[in-house]
């Protein structure tokens, strides 16, 4: 199948390479975002998320590989490809000579839409993002959270199929964050394909159906959110003892017990069945080790993230 725009994924990245001088920011990553997917793109600072996004939207020139948007190559069919994407960038890049409402009209204009074609949508977006009262303000007069909302409104002004949001909730208060989550879910229901980067892992866990984790320019995980949780994270069980220990008791070796380095009263286990747990408790009781409490912690995406990006070792 050479080119089948009708079935092609919303975004397909093939072996993307991007270098800055001697440094390789993106090192041969490949992934696809299916139509209507909510894709989370995670990774530590400097991993290459923004660089990958810039390559997709045409802000970065690629050194290798190929990117297609709905089957259209972004370097050759760039006009069609760009119409399909709305970007809310990580760094603010507003036109300082324009007022809030004008920013939306001019951005639509660059996408080839006349003011009267978008007037209704512009006002609806201002309303949706709580910016109506600031319609005639300059960007310099907005708070940080308002600027964030304006980047989202601007990304939607030409009604794109794909919305790419680079850290849309950075510097946003809790209430607004939850509001934005609802807005993003609503966009997803409207059938938009969404790509989101965030450093709030719980945000990705709450919103994204699929997750790609990038580290040092390489994709280290690319899975459905649940299967990622299932395959990489384990529920942890902690037994708190009455008295500290020097080392994990040898008889618990085959349950891979670890002593919490920060609290020698805590024994940690990965994935214990109820039967194994009673066995462990019996063994402890036999040796006269007093148990005060037993806790289980559900695995989170954060655990997966830390395990995969090697940040957990620290």
């Amino acid at each position: 199948m050479v080119d089948a725009p009708s079935q092609a994924p919303a975004i397909a990245v093939h072996h993307l390479v991007k270098r800055y001088g001697d440094a390789t920011a993106v090192n041969g990553i490949s992934f696809a975002v299916e139509r209507g997917d909510f894709f989370g793109f995670l990774g530590p600072n400097g991993a290459g998320k923004t660089t990958t996004i810039n390559a997709i939207v045409g802000l970065a020139r690629v050194d290798g590989g190929r990117i297609e948007v709905f089957g259209r190559d972004v370097s050759t069919a760039w006009r069609q490809a760009r119409r399909l994407i709305g970007l809310a960038p990580q760094e603010y890049n507003f036109d300082r000579y324009l007022r809030v409402r004008e920013i939306l009209f001019y951005q639509a204009g660059y996408y080839g839409l006349r003011p009267r074609e978008v007037a209704v949508r512009v006002d609806a977006l201002l309303e949706r993002f709580g910016l109506s009262a600031k319609a005639h303000a300059f960007v310099a007069q907005l708070s940080g959270g308002m600027k964030r909302r304006l980047t989202l409104a601007r990304a939607l002004v030409h009604d794109p199929q794909i919305v790419i949001l680079d850290e849309p909730t950075a510097g946003v208060d809790v209430e607004l964050r939850l509001e934005l989550w609802e807005t993003l879910r609503a966009l997803r229901r409207e059938g938009k394909t969404i790509v989101l980067t965030t450093h709030y892992i719980e945000e990705a866990e709450a919103l994204c159906e699929r997750i790609g984790i990038i580290e040092a320019g390489r994709m280290v995980a690319l899975e459905k959110t649940e299967s990622l949780l299932r395959s990489h994270a384990r529920d942890e069980l902690t037994i708190t003892l009455a008295h500290p220990l020097q080392a994990p008791p040898p008889m618990l070796a085959h349950f891979s017990a670890r002593l919490d380095p920060e609290n020698a009263c805590r024994l940690r286990f990965e994935r214990l069945s109820p039967l194994q747990l009673s066995e462990v408790l019996a063994l402890l009781g036999r040796d006269g080790i007093d148990v005060e409490a037993v806790n289980t912690e559900r695995a989170t995406l954060q655990d997966v993230f830390l395990a995969l990006t090697g940040r957990g070792a620290r």
Binding site: G58, R82, R96
Partner: peptide, 18 residues
């Protein structure tokens, strides 16, 4: 220069403008 410096030029660069 200002459009580059404030990144406002990106509004045009991500749009279908040649």
């Amino acid at each position: 220069f200002q459009a580059r410096f404030t990144y406002a030029i990106q509004e045009m660069l991500v749009a279908p403008m040649s």
